[in-house]
Write a protein that binds this DNA or RNA. Structure first.
Length: 769
DNA sequence: GTAAAGACTTAGCAAACTCTGT
DNA sequence: ACAGAGTTTGCTAAGTCTTTAC
């Protein structure tokens, strides 16, 4: 533990949800929002002005400090510039959003990425590797050669063609899978003969992309074909009997306004429809959808009554639950059909699952935490908003009848199949592949490899940043202290965010003075830093950590002459930090530390908690505990399930019952024993054995329940899923399962097994992260 | 060099589904 | 068959980091 920090000593922080209780610059922000709500479109200026007043104050301080500490400071200037630019930025964004929703004559669009060498060229010489892919310098494995020889782009052929080579490759795979070797060929043949297509399909499912070479030229695919996205169902007007009331009087709304009204009605039960910002944003955007007549009438949201609509939807969903089996089945089948048609694409030679093939339906935006844009209308996305990405030589997806895509491009430097610009933040949304796909899996694998490389040099880096705490230069001290936090506490990098555009959350580099408190002495510890801030998704991070004296002194220095709302690390941002990291190790960025520390913690914890004699449930509990240690490190929280208390009680009742049962059975056992002693006959012996077994069985059941209770209690506010899915090298878990003979299903469910197929296949029991 | 845009990963919540005990 | 609990999946917001534009 001491000075050097092996990560057995990660800091447990007892954070809690903070969105509402955590008042965070509330006054300041509230004012801002109200201000803005009045005049979003035109009057950004004023808002910005308001901000700059507030900033000026702190900027003066910055300058003072700058004089104090040596510096080359340009950061203040940046801020000024930043502010200026904000206005333009706003305007541009709005223009962009608008334009993306207006049918405008298509720009001649030639994106520079599309290279002639791409699919088309390859297509013309499918037998040969023509140099553009895979890149010439890499050696091919024999497997890859097969692949290339049977190069085939058209999906139909992929499916129907049964050439020799395909068979041959299949055999190879089978042989690898089954070591005993004699059978496979026959088995495969049989399968093929009897099941034809199915066997082919299975092969597809089992495709081991991780045994193939990876592209090195930056292209993400050679061939891509898909059917385009599925659009949200069109709006169905309310039946006439369902009325909307304004000011007590029924009022028939035109479809566009009515639709938006239903969005609000559907949310009526949510607390946030009572929030000021939400209501203001909503009304404003709603009015945009109204006819001028409606607009002149409806001016006050408080006079609107949506309750009939709301009831209607409740009844509707109730009715859906009550549907007959058949009806439900029909819906299920329809969904399945849609999935089959639109849920897959062909990428290179393989059919791959798409992650999100449905376009997000229109509705009201609800950001997380205290979001300034909550309640705004998320517009319906139409075909003319969509950019399609696919191979030139693929069958292009057809837009719905009577519509056009915004653009069809052929960019194999990116992985997405379709994209559109969303109207709330003006950001781009994508349709991409499922985590089980090659393209995602490769990246994931690579991520863990980078983290493993960090493992090899983390000692060196730690020595260096500790050294840097003593630097003469402020920027270096800040950088090194920030890095220490990132490493030790697994904080996120903390990019700058535009004020007023999103909830006020921070990460390491964007921490402000108000987010930490220094305690030279606290209880029996020295140099304690208390962190209290809202991180990603407005999840509160609360933690107290004793730090080394040098870090403490540095923090004191950083805090000098600053206001609460000033940046703690005023000489640092993520780009500076990452540039530095990049120099220390190829591919190193701030988030690699999170991956590394999460994975290494799991591995260590698993070792530590290992107890060979434990039963299976006890082992699984140990795993969950190790997983939990990571979740706590990464601050992955969840709202305690609504039914938590009750379900805990139920479990306790079960345990009590089981305990009673146990003592009863024990009594029986005792009786059986004395019976047997007395009579010594076969019958009593049999009974004795039976009772003995019963006791054992019930003991085991009890133990299981107790373990379950412990596990659940400890998990109340912790969410294990996020770390399991994103931070823990799956090979660690797979290896652990193999080592202790735990069925992998105890650790990973089906989806997770699909995502981690590569790890399942390649990790042996001795795998070391 | 810097800001903005773009691409992609990470995140928690809630609806949908499944399982279990009655 | 059913309710209720538990688990999985879908959804999409919110981050990080890279690339592009100026």
């Amino acid at each position: 533990m001491s000075g050097d920090h092996g990560h057995g000593d990660f800091q447990v922080n007892s954070g809690s949800k903070g969105s509402d209780s955590h008042k965070h610059k509330d006054k300041h922000k509230d004012k801002e929002h109200r201000h803005k709500d009045h005049k979003r479109d035109k009057e950004r200026e004023k808002l910005k002005h308001g901000n700059s007043e507030h900033k000026d104050h702190s900027e003066k301080k910055h300058k003072e400090k700058e004089k104090l500490k040596h510096s080359n400071g340009s950061s203040d200037k940046h801020r000024e510039k930043h502010k200026e630019k904000d206005k333009d930025k706003e305007k541009r964004r709005e223009e962009k959003i608008k334009s993306s929703h207006v049918d405008k004559p298509k720009k001649e669009k030639e994106n520079g990425y599309v290279r002639d060498t791409s699919p088309a060229a390859i297509k013309s010489e499918p037998e040969e590797d023509n140099g553009s892919y895979p890149s010439p310098q890499h050696n091919k494995t024999s497997k890859r050669e097969h692949d290339d020889e049977e190069f085939e782009y058209k999906p139909k052929k992929v499916k129907t063609e049964h050439d020799k080579k395909a068979k041959k490759r299949k055999h190879e795979y089978e042989e690898e899978e089954e070591e005993e070797d004699i059978k496979p060929k026959k088995k495969t043949k049989d399968k093929k003969v009897t099941e034809g297509k199915k066997a082919k399909k299975e092969e597809e499912e089992k495709w081991k992309w991780w045994e193939e070479e990876r592209s090195t030229d930056g292209s993400k695919w050679r061939f891509l074909e898909h059917k385009g996205p599925v659009f949200a169902a069109p709006y169905e007007p309310m039946p006439d009997k369902v009325k909307f009331y304004y000011d007590g009087k029924p009022m028939k709304l035109n479809a566009p306004a009515e639709e938006v009204a239903t969005f609000f009605a559907k949310m009526l039960d949510h607390e946030y429809t009572t929030k000021d910002i939400f209501r203001k944003n909503f009304l404003k955007d709603w009015r945009k959808e109204m006819t001028s007549e409606e607009k002149s009438k409806i001016t006050d949201l408080n006079k609107c009554k949506f309750s009939e609509m709301s009831e209607f939807f409740k009844a509707q969903s109730e009715a859906r639950k009550q549907m007959s089996k058949q009806e439900k089945l029909k819906i299920k089948e329809e969904n399945e059909r849609l999935l089959q048609e639109y849920g897959f694409c062909i990428m290179d030679n393989h059919k791959e699952k798409i992650g999100n093939f449905r376009i997000e339906p229109p509705g009201l935006f609800r950001g997380r935490g205290d979001h300034p844009k909550m309640g705004r209308l998320k517009l319906r996305i139409r075909p003319q908003d969509i950019i399609i990405n696919c191979s030139k030589d693929s069958k292009h997806p057809k837009p719905p009848p009577g519509t056009k895509w915004k653009e069809v491009r052929h960019d194999n430097k990116v992985t997405w199949l379709a994209s559109w610009t969303e109207n709330i933040q003006g950001s781009i949304k994508y349709i991409m592949l499922n985590p089980s796909s090659r393209i995602k899996g490769e990246k994931d694998w690579q991520k863990y490899e980078t983290a493993r490389r960090l493992k090899k040099c983390v000692g060196r880096l730690r020595t260096q940043y500790r050294d840097d705490w003593k630097s003469k230069e402020m920027r270096i001290r800040q950088r090194s202290v920030a890095l220490y936090f990132i490493d030790k506490l697994a904080l996120r990098a903390g990019n700058e965010k535009e004020e007023g555009e999103t909830a006020d959350t921070v990460g390491c580099c964007s921490l402000r003075v108000e987010h930490i408190k220094l305690y030279p002495k606290m209880d029996d510890q020295e140099y304690v830093v208390e962190f209290d801030f809202l991180g990603k998704d407005s999840i509160r991070y609360y933690n107290k950590m004793p730090v080394e004296k040098r870090v403490f002194k540095n923090l004191q220095l950083f805090l000098e002459n600053k206001q609460p709302e000033d940046d703690l690390f005023d000489r640092l941002n993520t780009s500076i930090l990452n540039k530095h990291l990049q120099e220390l190790m190829d591919g190193l960025t701030a988030k690699v530390f999170r991956t590394y520390n999460a994975s290494i913690t799991l591995q260590q914890q698993l070792k530590e908690l290992a107890c060979p004699d434990d039963s299976l449930p006890a082992k699984v509990l140990s795993y969950n505990r190790a997983n939990r240690a990571v979740a706590i490190l990464c601050n992955h929280q969840r709202a305690p399930p609504k039914t938590f208390e009750k379900s805990m009680q139920n479990l306790q009742t079960k345990i009590d019952e089981k305990q009673n049962q146990l003592s009863a059975v024990r009594k029986h056992l005792k009786a059986a024993k004395s019976d047997h002693k007395a009579s010594h006959d076969d019958k009593s012996k049999k009974i004795l054995e039976m009772k003995r077994k019963a006791v054992e069985r019930i003991e085991e059941q009890l133990m299981k329940l107790q373990v379950q209770a412990t596990d659940r209690e400890e998990n109340k506010q912790i969410s294990l899923g996020t770390s399991k899915l994103n931070y823990l090298d799956p090979r660690i878990s797979v290896a652990w399962c193999k080592k202790w003979d735990i069925p992998i299903e105890k650790i990973y469910n089906k989806t997770q097994r699909e995502k981690f197929a590569w790890a399942l296949d390649m990790a042996e029991k001795d795998y070391e992260f």
